[in-house]
Design a protein around this nucleic acid. Structure first.
Length: 628
DNA sequence: GTAGGGTTAG
């Protein structure tokens, strides 16, 4: 069995032993290089560097076939000091002019963020074979977010008549992943078509990713549909694109389509699908994905386990989430954050904070996102002092930047505790610009504590930042309404009319026997419509006591989607009625009291998951729950 | 025998 065919991992210790004596020094060099290549090819970069050092210790001399792999390892690990040392060895051994070595040097310097050194190597490149050197530096600029330099270098290439190829494009396109740079990206796309490089699958994938990252999901889908071939990466790019842009149901559709075409998903695919299941609360699809993970042997993939914890937490299956958490041998800050979030969003603030403290004890350093999860856990559970303590520790002990996402949690925390003035002071003391979520949290607190004056102030700020967010208008209108200020209600309505803002229809859904049943207000499209309305009528009569309503009084737009969902659940004897509400504001007061009354009359417990409350989360969705 | 490149979680 040659070393090329030997399984790598089990024999690592043997590979690190000194090289067997070879008949000639050149033959010994080949043996070292072969091993180095194997390790680098399998992503074993630390081992590759160890092997390089060992080679030097054993008196082996590196050559032009050694350096590319050793440099690649430094690049992958971002190790600049060994990288610079290697550069010294390159010069000493006279391998400097070798194009393979030069491009590896440029890449190494770029990945270590030493652009100046990369440029120096580039400027000294001998004429001829310039394309690869240009490619290396262009992609290096893109890697370091130097958009203008990358584009300028490409222009220079064209002016000097240096030929370019699809690899040039693969380096250049990632420079255009900001919406501001999209126009350049689109001209690159034209250029790609003009030169016939669009038949390259990798180039297509790269363009697809560019559109996705610029938020142009429509362009991305058009490109996807026009591509002659779809590789696994193509499917993944499109699926993760939908997931990143919050189009969770498109993710599920595309995933089904992918499977129906016989393409096997990999962990990258499944991570996106799970994150979308979490957004949708689509527990049954999530469970199916978990089976798929086990069948495919991806069970120990940490990315997938984190995604599973997140999915089960958001779907309300905390025990399951905890079991996966406990079984994970290595827990990163992401793992801890997922489980803390899970307990936090279900009002179990005590457990969430305990977990947070356990995390620190276990030596995992919290990051900004971990603090968001613990702060919001404190705010939901009313742990005001504890939350303020974390907020302090975040800055004092961990020197983490406190962003608007943290401030909005603390404003919420103070606001719910009735400390409106303190919340307002906190906002005024902010060194970063407060965003809509921060003012929105204050506005929400004003609703709870009926403070019209402060609400007006918060509203003024929030509509400046998010003029299109209808939720805030409705919130203020409700505050006025509760205060009996009808003039105020009218003023808000006029404002909405003038700005041509119309409330999007809210929708609610219930999962029944693995299927999602979706309702919009006044919906009559469900196959069981007649029975649902009859049940709703019955429930309305029950909670209204002796008032017997006429059938037509509960028909049309006044029938909220939550009510239809609950009537459907009761009608079908759904044991755990969990209604997920997606709209621009929290569950309305009318439905709130309706569900509460039904719960009381029937002596049953319901969970309403309101997917759009005024909490700032990175994905814009917060899964707070209310129980009745 | 070698370089320059495309998809991933809270």
């Amino acid at each position: 069995m040659t070393s090329k065919h030997r399984p790598l991992y089990g024999h690592l210790h043997r590979q690190l032993l000194p090289a067997p004596p070879a008949s000639t020094p050149a033959a010994a060099g080949v043996t070292w290089n072969t091993r180095l290549r194997e390790l680098s090819k399998h992503g074993q970069f630390s081992e590759a560097l160890a092997l390089y050092r060992q080679m030097l210790r054993c008196g082996g001399s590196p050559n032009a076939f050694t350096f590319p792999f050793a440099l690649k390892s430094c690049a992958a690990l971002s190790l600049s000091i060994p990288g610079v040392q290697l550069h010294g060895h390159v010069i000493k051994t006279g391998c400097g002019p070798e194009p393979f070595v030069l491009t590896s040097l440029i890449t190494m310097y770029c990945q270590c963020n030493l652009i100046g050194s990369a440029r120096k190597v580039f400027d000294e490149c001998p004429q001829g074979n310039l394309t690869v050197c240009y490619n290396a530096l262009t992609s290096g600029y893109a890697f370091n977010s130097r958009f203008l330099d990358a584009v300028a270098l490409f222009c220079q290439m064209r002016e000097l008549g240096v030929s370019f190829n699809s690899v040039t494009m693969l380096g250049l396109i990632p420079a255009c992943t900001l919406p501001a740079h999209l126009s350049v990206g689109m001209s690159l796309h034209s250029c790609i078509i003009k030169f016939g490089l669009d038949t390259d699958l990798s180039v297509g994938n790269c363009l697809l990713t560019m559109y996705v990252k610029c938020g142009c999901i429509k362009f991305a889908k058009t490109l996807f549909d026009s591509m002659p071939k779809h590789g696994l990466i193509t499917w993944n790019a499109m699926i993760s694109g939908y997931a990143q842009n919050g189009l969770a149901s498109n993710v599920v559709d595309l995933y089904q389509q992918m499977k129906s075409q016989g393409i096997h998903p990999d962990p990258v695919t499944l991570v996106s699908v799970l994150s979308s299941c979490a957004h949708l609360g689509a527990h049954s699809i999530g469970r199916e994905v978990e089976r798929q993970i086990e069948l495919s042997g991806f069970g120990s993939n940490p990315f997938l386990n984190n995604a599973l914890i997140n999915m089960y937490s958001r779907c309300g299956k905390l025990a399951k989430a905890l079991a996966i958490f406990n079984a994970m041998p290595e827990k990163t800050v992401v793992t801890w954050t997922a489980i803390i979030n899970g307990y936090g969003m279900h009002g179990q603030g005590e457990i969430a904070t305990q977990l947070f403290d356990d995390m620190i004890r276990s030596g995992v350093r919290p990051d900004g996102a971990a603090f968001v999860s613990v702060l919001s856990a404190c705010s939901h559970a009313g742990l005001t002092d504890k939350g303020l303590e974390y907020f302090e520790v975040m800055k004092e002990k961990y020197s983490l930047r406190r962003g608007p996402e943290h401030y909005s949690c603390v404003v919420d925390l103070l606001g719910r505790a009735g400390k409106l003035a303190e919340a307002f002071d906190l906002i005024r003391s902010m060194k970063v610009e407060p965003d809509g979520a921060v003012w929105g949290a204050l506005l929400g607190a004003c609703k709870i504590h009926k403070n019209v004056e402060l609400a007006e102030l918060a509203f003024k700020r929030v509509v400046k930042l998010e003029p299109e967010n209808i939720g805030y208008y409705v919130l203020l209108s409700n505050i006025y309404n509760e205060a009996g200020n009808l003039e105020g209600v009218l003023r808000v309505r006029v404002m909405m009319r003038d700005r041509k803002l119309r409330k999007e229809p809210g929708y609610s859904y219930v999962e029944h026997r693995g299927e999602v049943h979706l309702f919009i207000a006044g919906d009559r499209s469900h196959p069981q419509t007649e029975e649902i309305y009859r049940m709703l009528h019955k429930l309305e009569s029950l909670v209204e006591g002796l008032h017997d309503l006429k059938e037509n009084e509960i028909s049309g737009m006044s029938v909220h989607s939550e009510k239809l969902a609950i009537a459907f659940g009761i009608l079908n004897s759904e044991p755990n009625i969990e209604i997920v509400v997606i709209k621009n504001l929290r569950v309305c007061g009318d439905c709130h009291s309706f569900i509460k009354s039904v719960s009381k009359v029937l002596d049953r417990r319901f969970v309403v998951r309101d997917a759009t409350r005024f909490h700032h989360f990175s994905n814009g969705i917060c899964s707070c729950r209310d129980y009745w």
